[in-house]
Design a protein around this nucleic acid. Sequence first.
DNA 1: GCCCAATTGACAGTAACCTGTCATGATGGC
DNA 2: GCCATCATGACAGGTTACTGTCAATTGGGC
Lengths: 163, 163
Amino acid sequence: MNKPTAAGELFTELVLEVFRVNGLALEAGDQLSEPVGLSSARWQVLGVVDHEPAPVANVARIMGLTRQSVQQTADALERDGFVEYLPNPHHRRAKLIALTPRGREALRKVEARHAAWANALGTEVDLKNLRAAVSGLRQVRERLEAHASASAHDARTGGPHDG
Amino acid sequence: MNKPTAAGELFTELVLEVFRVNGLALEAGDQLSEPVGLSSARWQVLGVVDHEPAPVANVARIMGLTRQSVQQTADALERDGFVEYLPNPHHRRAKLIALTPRGREALRKVEARHAAWANALGTEVDLKNLRAAVSGLRQVRERLEAHASASAHDARTGGPHDG
DNA sequence: GCCCAATTGACAGTAACCTGTCATGATGGC
DNA sequence: GCCATCATGACAGGTTACTGTCAATTGGGC
């Protein structure tokens, strides 16, 4: 029959809450980065190559996105002068994404604005609740990841259906 | 100076965890709805008009999206025969999105699959942790919403900056 | 050294969101 | 009733993600 149980409904409620917070956080990220000419996506790429220059595919793996998405963002960042492609001594084709002075300055400004934002929000939420939310979410993520890889395995092997 | 505090870092960590869970939940939603020819976005629209037929702008408000996004999804759903546009007795231009028999059947199947999924996941996470995560997230969302509307107000009035 | 598989960047196309703009339709002040 | 205003659908265009495909490059097996 597959009627929702109490735990199932609570789980669904958590997911809906995650959707809302996700949207609000993205919006906040865009507002934090907009004044320096960035966006959430661009900011994240700059953050990855801040530590050390890296090729597109490398950045994509770190961010959990496809090469193609990161390529598009990186090309846009190059057009706007935030990054430049440096020759890669280890790979002729896979050029390195590197921050320009302008990119580094923009990143520093966004990080300062982000810190101020997170600090302000952090003080407005009870620390105990914050910790509980983080550890609860972590547990949920682990279960979701397990389910996702199980589904992927089923898809490969023709495993369990629920048709 | 704007250096991250402990609470600020914890808050940032929560947001990153939310991003990951959001991605996994969307992926799961697509997998739940894909077998009947739907996607997360389409499923959500069907869910709204299941209760009663409604015009595009109405659905958009309920979902927290723009009219234009919902219009695109609804047009696609109509092309694929999941919904039809009914004349609206109260408004000549704003036709009503209504489920077709095919749409209703697809929605029922997705809902059954969703319930099975949520029930299974719900039993795998400690109930106490689940509740803590939901209430913690709710509190965070409220603070984010307050900040967001404050920023919007600042933008309108030329209020506080932090440059 | 040579070939095959994997990796990489490039390019085309799609999905789902967004903003901006416009004409049509509804609504309330007068 | 008339007109300004607002709501609505439609259309154009942009962002950020995706999949699929291709040639160039790299690197391992032989």
